[in-house]
Design a protein around this nucleic acid. Structure first.
Lengths: 216, 216
DNA sequence: TAGATTGTTAATCGATTAACAATC
DNA sequence: TAGATTGTTAATCGATTAACAATC
């Protein structure tokens, strides 16, 4: 028997939610560490930046292969490649940004998406003043052309950066255009069909939760 | 023996990370549902908005008391009060926003913090052009007065909304001023003492993770 | 070699879920 | 009453952690 008792994940196997979330965070740390000129990193260093236990990190990684060197750590470039393969995020992904207001402008001008191979392929707004202007590298399009743009530019994610009172309308239009993943930066609760995934980002909620651990 | 086998949490007991995170999310849903004019809600409705299992929600809540009515659901106002008591977030909390650029402006003009009793008590920027202007209800202060403002205005949280290359400097200055909770909206990794909690928000990382479940 | 760090085990703890009686 | 939904049990599964041999 060559098979050891340690379980190694099958290639086609689906990750659990927890593992996928943690691998994504390792990806961010590795990306930044590389930018800072490092070429290797230990599980303890990743732990310091993510607040994820170092043993857990080694365990997560060793489920897919032996990526590290004992006594040395992990090579950042090769680990980045391994995790991208596991998460299947090697390619380029196109997203549409709804809303060219202050938040939309902040998102469009941030390098945060490009760094991870995510391409803002369209920015849409209803305001004629904003249509035609450039934000980042993208020209703002008329909101009414949402459906055709989603189809033409192969967009799979919609990012909602409009005030709460227009968020549901944007979600409805994205769903009608065929988008299955929505990131919601308004505080509104969105009603969508069950095959559409909504991620609502609410800094205030995260803050309340952080405060709890500070106050106790 | 009046004591049942179901364990009820002690008043002084510390919540686990998972419970505190989920309670915070219930808080958000309840806040929004109330704004939409509802006065009661079922565990299934909360489940639909949070993607947290309805049984888990009932279990989380029943650990602290019998807050619902069978056949009816939960009263939104009273449940809000109960959760706020559990999370000890009844009061007003003061935060400082570092950076009055596009992201800072978006955060300052959003109702998302005020809705949860979080008060943006100061906004700081290095740019003389921005100092003195008003964002939301707050006048932008000179970055150099950070330390004195943190002390005077009883600020316990710093929100970093500056470009990555200035984020570490902002973190260092916040730590020196005595702030123990930092929200980092840049993509930089921050080095801070171990008694300071850093929450880095990275939409790209969350997106990669959402994509994984979409693609598989 | 000596020191550092991985990969793995084993044990524990909390999260998750289906099912259903209780009860509004 | 009939229908709906909570509160609770019981069973399972994944997360977490300390410890340490393997090995770079």
């Amino acid at each position: 028997m060559l098979q050891s008792s340690a379980r190694r994940a099958e290639p086609g196997e689906r990750l659990t939610v927890g593992v996928a979330a943690r691998l994504s965070r390792y990806l961010q740390v590795l990306t930044q560490a590389r930018k800072m000129g490092k070429d290797r990193i230990s599980s303890q260093e990743i732990a310091d930046y993510t607040n994820i236990n170092a043993t857990q990190i080694r365990r997560d990684l060793s489920a897919f292969g032996k990526f590290g060197k004992r006594g040395v750590g992990y090579n950042i470039d090769s680990l980045l490649g391994e995790i991208r393969t596991i998460l299947r995020t090697q390619g380029q992904h196109n997203i549409a940004l709804i809303g060219a207001g202050r938040l939309g402008q902040a998102i469009a001008s941030s390098p945060i998406f490009a760094e991870h191979g995510i391409n803002i392929a369209a920015i849409l707004d209803k305001d004629p003043e904003k249509v035609g202007r450039r934000l980042g590298n993208v020209e703002v399009s008329d909101y009414r052309s949402l459906a055709s743009i989603v189809q033409e530019r192969n967009i799979i994610v919609g990012v909602i950066a409009v005030p709460a009172d227009h968020a549901q309308e944007a979600a409805d239009d994205l769903v009608r255009a065929g988008v299955k993943i929505i990131f919601n930066y308004s505080e509104a609760l969105l009603d969508v069909p069950s095959d559409v995934a909504v991620h609502t980002s609410n800094p205030a909620v995260e803050l309340l939760y952080a405060l709890y651990f500070h106050l106790t």
